[in-house]
Design a protein around this nucleic acid. Structure first.
Lengths: 116, 116
DNA sequence: ACAACTATTCAACGATTATTGAAATAATGA
DNA sequence: TCATTATTTCAATAATCGTTGAATAGTTGT
């Protein structure tokens, strides 16, 4: 992953609306949601949601598929996982024992990183 | 983690300079780096780096400690892990078998998420 | 073809952000 | 104390971002 790709992804996730949308679609998985359903769930005006969906889709965080008169959006989970890998790579110069204490302090460390 | 906290963290990481700084310090782990060392490593003017270090520190992505006439910065790795947990929680409604295919497509999935 | 429905594009405004040089603050060592 | 080094703050500018209503485009069923 390149720096420019990663920053554009983080920029996408730096808006409250876009973060809510993405997390909602991560939960939905392959099922995804159509635009109007997202708008009503999150109480965002359709015109505003469309602006944010476009930004997320342009940065590949979402995929979109036409479905009759609806547009179905899905989260790009592989991209999310690549981004996490980019952020955490070479943590503590590859010596995880150096940051074991810091990992202990996190509630989620067991869920996302191996203890090695 | 709250939405407002997460968005401010993503906003911090949405600048190329700040992302470079944070990843550099993740690699350095507990050792950290002093401001001037970061500036020369990344070729960023000190006045501009200071601006970004302040933003990262205010959002708790970095901690800072006075060390003589130097300021030593370190990455807040527990916060990073909490953020990752917030982003990935309830992935595919807690049924990871639904997104197994998507995980296969990621180069880093083995490194960051359990296969369950 | 037409009406109903879904979603996006456009234009405009206000608010926020990144960058720079110059000046200021703070700590060290002679 | 005084000069030196390290880092931050300040002011000003240019550029970008978020939100909204109105208008537009595409799809469906009759």
């Amino acid at each position: 992953m390149e720096n420019t790709i990663a920053t554009s992804i983080f920029e996408s996730l730096s808006s409250g609306v876009r973060l809510d949308v993405f997390r909602l679609l991560v939960k939905k998985g392959m099922e995804g949601m159509v635009a109007g359903e997202i708008a009503s769930t999150l109480n965002v005006p359709p015109t505003n949601l469309s602006f944010h969906l476009k930004a997320l889709t342009q940065n590949r965080l979402l995929s979109v598929e036409q479905e009759g008169r609806f547009q179905r959006y899905r989260a790009n989970i592989p991209l999310m996982l690549d981004l996490i890998g980019y952020l955490t790579e070479e943590c503590c110069e590859g010596h995880p024992e150096y940051c074991a204490e810091m990992r202990e302090a996190s509630m989620c460390c067991d869920a996302v990183l191996p203890k090695n």
